[in-house]
Computed example of a mutant assay.
Amino acid sequence: MELKRDIYKNLLRWKNDDTGQVLQVSGARQVGKTYILKKFAYENFRHVVYISMAEPSGGQFLQCLDKINEWEPGTPREERPVHKAFELFDREFCDTKDTVIIIDEIQESSRVFNLVRTLAREFDCYAIITGSYLGRLLSKEFFLPAGDFEDLTLETLTFAEFVGVFGKRNLYESIDLFGGSDAEQYKELKACFDLYQRIGGYPSVVNMYLENKSLEPV
């Protein structure tokens, strides 16, 4: 079952604002960053370039960067080397508003992270970086460009998102907090809250519960 996440509307807002800033999405492991970013990308862009610095695609992109940095004295230099690296990585890459680049597990490569300023200032396409251990970006080899990226955080499912899984989001948003609603409505939300306290908001755990309808491990 697809879990609707509130961050999606913020992703749309970032796209529509079109500030030129690279979007940084932070959050712990297993909260659904990669899933929601791919969903957003494939639903809103004609072309998606996905690179994970923790997977083979990351090493392949580094090879592309190495290739475009090869130069012999006396020969012309590549005018737009980072653009060329993406063209080597993806033959269909086109630097337009119909394209989005997603670089996952960005904390694994300071070299790639340090391209953020170039992505923000010299590219027309959209770019998103994400990772689970972004605290590493405080290391001295990572250059933090001021003003070149916007930051969003994805957490585990909030209670509002959780009740939405069970079709009770409208109830949650409309119930009278001062006791003016029907008693059965409060009971419905209380039952959801009790379940939320027991299983939490990690998407994989919620999906497992939905599949098995049981709190017991399978």
Score class of each variant (00 low, 15 high):
23 L>Q: 04
108 E>C: 05
75 T>R: 13
104 D>P: 08
132 S>W: 06
88 L>M: 06
97 K>I: 05
119 L>I: 00
17 D>V: 14
93 F>Y: 11
80 R>M: 06
79 E>P: 01
36 I>K: 13
123 F>V: 02
76 P>A: 05
34 T>H: 11
15 K>Y: 01
33 K>F: 09
128 I>R: 04
120 A>E: 05
20 G>E: 00
114 N>S: 00
110 S>V: 01
86 F>C: 03
144 L>E: 07
44 N>M: 11
67 K>G: 01
125 C>T: 03
14 W>T: 04
88 L>K: 05
19 T>I: 09
20 G>M: 02
106 I>W: 04
23 L>E: 03
11 L>W: 04
72 E>Q: 15
26 S>N: 15
101 I>D: 02
143 F>D: 12
11 L>E: 10
73 P>M: 13
9 K>S: 14
90 D>L: 07
19 T>E: 10
8 Y>L: 11
15 K>E: 02
29 R>I: 09
72 E>H: 13
34 T>K: 13
115 L>P: 02
81 P>A: 03
78 E>D: 05
83 H>K: 11
47 H>Y: 09
76 P>K: 15
114 N>T: 00
117 R>F: 03
10 N>A: 13
98 D>M: 01
132 S>R: 06
40 F>A: 07
48 V>N: 07
30 Q>K: 14
51 I>F: 06
144 L>A: 14
117 R>E: 10
48 V>L: 12
64 C>A: 13
96 T>Q: 07
121 R>W: 00
79 E>C: 02
60 Q>K: 13
58 G>N: 09
144 L>Y: 09
115 L>G: 03
127 A>N: 01
140 K>P: 08
6 D>S: 15
119 L>P: 01
80 R>Q: 14
59 G>Q: 14
73 P>T: 06
16 N>D: 12
125 C>G: 01
114 N>H: 07
31 V>Q: 14
21 Q>E: 13
83 H>V: 03
111 R>W: 00
25 V>P: 06
58 G>F: 06
88 L>N: 05
96 T>C: 04
131 G>P: 02
139 S>W: 04
51 I>H: 05
100 V>E: 11
81 P>M: 00
70 E>N: 07
136 R>A: 08
17 D>K: 15
96 T>E: 10
88 L>Y: 10
32 G>E: 13
35 Y>C: 11
137 L>K: 07
83 H>E: 12
145 P>I: 00
7 I>F: 12
44 N>S: 10
99 T>A: 01
117 R>S: 03
13 R>H: 11
46 R>H: 12
103 I>L: 05
136 R>S: 07
149 F>Q: 12
36 I>V: 15
63 Q>A: 08
39 K>C: 11
83 H>Q: 11
139 S>A: 13
26 S>F: 08
130 T>W: 04
41 A>N: 06
7 I>K: 12
5 R>I: 12
74 G>I: 07
17 D>E: 15
84 K>G: 05
54 A>Q: 13
142 F>C: 05
42 Y>F: 15
73 P>D: 14
38 K>R: 15
105 E>Y: 00
5 R>Q: 04
98 D>V: 00
133 Y>S: 15
74 G>L: 08
130 T>G: 01
61 F>A: 02
137 L>N: 00
8 Y>W: 10
